[in-house]
Amino acid sequence: MTMEKLVEKYFRPGRLPHIWCPGCGNGIVTGAIVKAIDKLELAKDDVAVISGIGCSSRASGYLDFNTANTLHGRAIPIASGVKMGDPRLNVIVVTGDGDSTAIGGNHIIHAARRNIDLTVVIFNNNIYGMTGGQYSPLTPIHSKATTAPYTTIEPAFNIPELVKAAGATFVARATTFHAQILADVIAQGIAHKGFSVIEAVSACPISFGRQNKMGGPADMMKWQRDHGVPLAAWDKMTDEQKEGKFPIGVLHHDTSKQEYTDAYDGIIKTAQGGK
């Protein structure tokens, strides 16, 4: 389906243009989410999109599903409640790097540990965009931010390694340049029964790019093209070649672990069988 048709089918009418700045990657990630949903042929009534607060979190309001734009950092607990309340729903969390790994950092590791069937799409633009360019846990060290006028001294998280260590059973990464791969890995994440995290490397030309002399929106997208390496190629690279670059694709997929709501059904059976 063309993007035009996807917008017609999955976006709420009359809500475009969206609020994001010129060149912001959030629209591309949002588009990738609807492509993934379309690929899986999910009924709109069976999809819930839960977001926190921040630029990326405004995506939920544009999409014609069961949607909630909630509190900063708290999308994952709410989504966990939605999934527990109605396990039939495909629950997608739309969140930013600050939302999910700073204020919501505790929630993402515990949801990963539980292996609850949520698909978390992290729009990683390396910065707090909505509030105007403060550094996040995903701002690369030695970058400038409005709260790091002398550059940051904090190393950034590696999202895939973080959530994999915490127990996530599907982990992938793509960029807004690799938009088709992004849609594909989101679809695989939704189809996976368990806790899935997709890091969508995005660009914030206004609040991150300008401060760090990254050029314009097209330059930042070219940066993604030149630094995101598909896994097959990545595996053949030397450590020297990998320096400063990052792998994209499905980085971890484990189907051996029991999903949380399934496990809870077992608890219900035990509790009811004991009578």
Binding site: T2, M3, E4, W20, G23, G27, I28, G31, M221
Partner: peptide, 14 residues
């Protein structure tokens, strides 16, 4: 263009 447009503003006519 369609693939990379963040604003759903340009479409290839099929």
């Amino acid at each position: 263009c369609e693939l990379r447009c963040p604003d759903f503003a340009i479409n290839v006519v099929k």
